[in-house]
Amino acid sequence: MLLAILRRVGQMFFVMVGISMLVFMIFFATPGADPASRIAGRNASPEILEAVRKSFGFDQPFYVQYLIMMKKIFITGDLTSFVNRGWKVVPAVLDTIPVTLSLVIGAAILWVIFGIIIGTVAAATRGSWLDKLLMILGLIGISMPVYWLGEVMNLVTQSRYHDTWMFSWVPPLGYKNLSSDPKGWFLTLIIPWITLAILYIGLYGRVLRANLIEAMQEDYVRTARAKGLSETRILLRHALRTSLISFVTLFGLDFGALVGGSALLTEVVFDLHGVGKLTYDALQNLDLPVIMTTVMYASFFVVLANALVDVVYILLDPRVRSV
């Protein structure tokens, strides 16, 4: 089993190197445009262009350029933005990562717990009013756009009802550092967590319910019934356990995408300076070094999340272990 996990991690690094090459090629090796002028940004003077060309080695072969770029991102970390002169890109991205991770991990914990509860309860009470109610709530959750929900949340907790006993604890928007102010960190993030999680709770609850109902038709569930086990035990130990396998797949994809920048709207609404916000700002200025670094970071996270999913698979499903 350990071997299977190690092999999967090795594969992950292999894929990451591949992605870094691909991203590099897309940004700098596409023909027809001078990469130096792209990096330098709009209206750059000829001297700056020349400096860029030198420092990125654009007068040298591709692989040298690639290695220089990788060195700048991963080893020396001195890749600088040319829009905001002298602004170091790598520390800027590193600064935003804790913000996004805090937001997404917290929301993920919420949505996994509530998704499983809702899906399981709905499947167990299939056809009843409770099942129907939960599924309708889930559908509403999926249908509410996150920016709208976020604004409503802000309206309610920050202005309209802020002075009532219910929401007086809600701190002003913005991010508090976890290590220096853990309580503030927690309080500021509660509302964003709920906002981001609601969509996924609805989605995961509905998907899990469908999976569970399918699993309850399986032969092995019939065997479990024939063994004289209780319905609760059959649902939780037999059906849920096997249904979680596809649940985890979905989770890996969503989690990776969110950490990689898809949480942008939530970050903007709650004024959290995360990776999404950084990418968004860089795109506005066509700040190529920043865009490239965040794209690379985002794809790394998707790969990492998928590798983690596969490791969880190995733990969940014995059939995967022996392959």
Partner: peptide, 15 residues
């Protein structure tokens, strides 16, 4: 007790 037709699917795969 009962024995079913298809032994391939009659047992829960994860235990």
């Amino acid at each position: 007790a009962m024995i079913f037709q298809d032994p391939m699917t009659a047992l829960t795969p994860v235990y």
